[in-house]
Amino acid sequence: MIERALIAAGLLLLGACLFLAFRAGHLRRATRRATAAGKPAILYFRSDLCLPCQTQGRFLQELQAALGDQIHIERIDAHAEREKAAQYGIFTVPTTLVMDAHGAVRHANYGLADVHKLVGQLQTVGVGAHPSHLRM
């Protein structure tokens, strides 16, 4: 049983490492494609074929209203702009990429990212967010 537990732990660790490597590669690839907005930005890949994107869109509206000019949010229809989505390595929607002011993509969220998570990520790229102003 101990051996099997160690095998399980090893496989889980391997899986986590593979995912982290994939995400690191994705962030590098997306950074090569991105252009700096001069301030922290969120690239939001969405589609009309995606119902959770409604919720993600609402979260981003709240974020923009709370943070104003501190961030730039760009909405990209991954279905209509397939080539652009492919250049950023997008394989699911909603996907949000969080960039710093120099255009480096620092975080990638595959699937719905709530306001709290985005605020935390924006704080790592220098945004002075005030979560208390946001409805959670």
Binding site: F19, L49, T92, N109, Y110, G111
Partner: peptide
């Protein structure tokens, strides 16, 4: 685990 940890639902992706 991918769904739980990252929010990516592979089955949902296949469905759509």
């Amino acid at each position: 685990g991918l769904n739980l940890g990252v929010g990516f639902c592979a089955g949902c992706f296949v469905y759509y």
